[in-house]
C-alpha cells in the first residue's frame, strides 16, 4: 500500500518536474529571442498620406477611426528640422479656399484646429505679412487624421509632417487595429529604438 502511494507520488513528481522543465526551456528560448522590444510605428514611406508619388487623392483617415484608443494613438508630428516654415503652409491652411483680405487662405485645414501658427525671426519691414512661421501641432488636440500630412508632402510641401504613434497612448496591441485596415500596410512593428528615430536623430545632431 505505502509502496504504491510513494510510487504514485514519485510519478507525479516526475511529471511535474518535466512540465516545469519544459516550460523553463520554452521560456529560456523565448527570452533569448526577445532581443529588443518591438513597438508599432507608422512607416512614412508607405503611409498613403506621406508616401511620395501619391497625388490627387484624399487623405486617408483610418488612423483616426480604427484605433482602439478613444483618441487615436497616432498623431501628426512636425519635424522642425525639415519644416520650410512657409508663409502659406498647405498643412495649416486649406490652400484651395478663397483668399481673405489678409492675403491668406480663409480656411484652416485641420478640422480640430490643432496646429498653431506663430511668426518667428525678425519681420521684414518691407513686407511684414510675409515671413517665417512656426507650425506647432498640439498633441492633445491632434487625432491623427493625416490631412495635414497629405498636404505637407512633396511636391507641394516638404514632407516635414508625418504620422507617428504616440507611445504614451498606444496600448501596443498584439495586432494593431489600424494595421489591419491600413491599405498600404504602413503600420508595422519595429524595434523600439528604431521606433524612436526622431529622438535618436536629434541626439546625434
Amino acid at each position: 500500500m505505502s509502496d504504491a502511494v510513494s510510487r504514485r507520488e514519485l510519478l507525479s513528481k516526475l511529471v511535474r518536474g518535466s512540465v516545469l522543465a519544459g516550460m523553463g526551456g520554452a521560456a529560456l528560448f523565448l527570452v533569448k529571442k526577445a532581443n529588443g522590444e518591438i513597438v508599432w510605428q507608422v512607416d512614412a514611406s508607405r503611409c498613403v498620406n506621406s508616401r511620395l508619388g501619391e497625388v490627387g487623392v484624399e487623405a486617408c483617415t483610418l488612423c483616426t477611426s480604427e484605433c482602439v484608443v478613444s483618441l487615436s494613438a497616432v498623431r501628426a508630428v512636425n519635424d522642425f528640422s525639415k519644416c520650410g516654415r512657409c508663409n502659406v503652409c498647405p498643412a495649416y491652411f486649406d490652400i484651395t479656399s478663397a483668399v481673405n483680405e489678409l492675403g491668406l487662405p480663409s480656411q484652416k485645414l485641420c478640422p480640430r484646429d490643432a496646429i498653431t501658427r506663430k511668426m518667428i525671426g525678425a519681420a521684414d519691414p518691407e513686407d511684414p505679412a510675409n515671413n517665417f512661421y512656426e507650425y506647432v501641432i498640439d498633441e492633445e488636440k491632434c487625432d491623427g487624421c493625416g490631412r495635414c500630412v497629405m498636404k505637407c508632402k512633396a511636391p507641394l510641401g516638404l514632407g516635414s509632417i508625418t504620422l507617428k504613434v504616440r507611445y504614451n497612448k498606444c496600448l501596443d496591441c498584439n495586432r494593431c487595429a489600424i494595421s489591419l485596415s491600413c491599405p498600404k500596410d504602413a503600420v508595422t512593428q519595429v524595434p523600439k529604438m528604431a521606433g524612436l528615430e526622431i529622438k535618436l536623430a536629434e541626439h546625434t545632431e
Partner: peptide, 19 residues
C-alpha cells in the same frame, strides 16, 4: 529650408514632441 541659425531674431527650433 530655413534653419535656426539663418532665421535670426533669437529663434530657437522647438524640440519635436515625442511621447
Amino acid at each position: 529650408a530655413p534653419q535656426q541659425e539663418t532665421i535670426g531674431g533669437g529663434y530657437k527650433t522647438p524640440a519635436v514632441q515625442k511621447p
